[in-house]
Amino acid sequence: MRFKLNRKKREVHLGDRVFAFILKVPSVALVLLLVSIAYYLFRNALPVIHKQGWSFVTTSVWDPVNDVYGALPVVYGTVVSSFIAILISTPLSVGVALFLTEIAPTRVGRVVGFLVEMLAAIPSVVYGLWGIFVLAPWLRTTVEPFLAKTMGFLPFFQGAPYGVGMLAAGIILAIMITPTISSISREIFNAIPRVQREAALALGSTRWEMMRLSVLQSARRGIIGAVILGLGRALGETMAVTMLIGNRHEVSASLFAPGSTMASIIANEYAEATSDVHVAALVEVGLLLFAVTFVINSLARLFISRGFRWGAPSNSPGGAK
């Protein structure tokens, strides 16, 4: 009797082991995939790494004819356009999240939450199309002249209003990363137990004071994580930016001026690059972009997982007892 039981158990174990192995293969392959992406990028960027070394990121001339490549302007364009996006999107997204968790009646919150999620579902190329024909003309005829008139003494708001350019790219990025930042902030706010909020209310704080005291204070770390994640999205966003930034390889202080980003220069030039060094230069831009987004997203993960300090058992029965 005992022998029989043992035998059967071993059989079960064998089937399970095979099955677990079958499932493990794609999991290992997934890890290898990520590693090999990094490896291929590095290997294919080698020609230009050997040829130019650090001058690749410190100089600004990008001349495929003479095979000289300086990526400074695209790095600058990436940083500035993403910075504009974060500047606009952070208050907006946190505001949306607070509205959804603290103010909106359940039904309104559900609808607005769905609409904000839908913003994330629109393909990048459609944002680009809308940007070219709706956003850019509006910026050119209304917003940029207004900014030049009111704040033209700043170097950021000088020069001819093109419509397409750094500002347009920054705004479209802001729209695109708002759902990311707001949905994570919202989850973090929801994880804060109700007793935290009631503690503030019971002290006689107004609704806004309650949000500051119980929600924003406890969620600071998580919000930072959400913003970093949004930044990661903005840095790598390609199509809409390519269509709106004007694609000029230049560092210009004015936000009205066209520029280009790391992602946009790859999208623009890769398929037509002929010389090996040109290809390698674009791959090295990709390698930099990969490294930056990798670091940024790891950082965001760290912040967000720590941001859920309240994720643990939320046994706050809210009074229905």
């Binding site: 997934l30 995939l33 990520l34 992406i37 291929y40 990028l41 294919n44 994640l229 990661g232 999205r233 840095l235 790598g236 966003e237 390609t238 992602a263 790859i266 999208a267 890769y270 674009l282 791959v283 990709g286 972009l289 990969f290 987004t293 990798f294 997203n297 790891s298």
Partner: peptide, 12 residues
Amino acid sequence: MLSSIPSIIVGL
């Protein structure tokens, strides 16, 4: 990480 790296990198 795969979901958060820019899609153009996958293209490369």
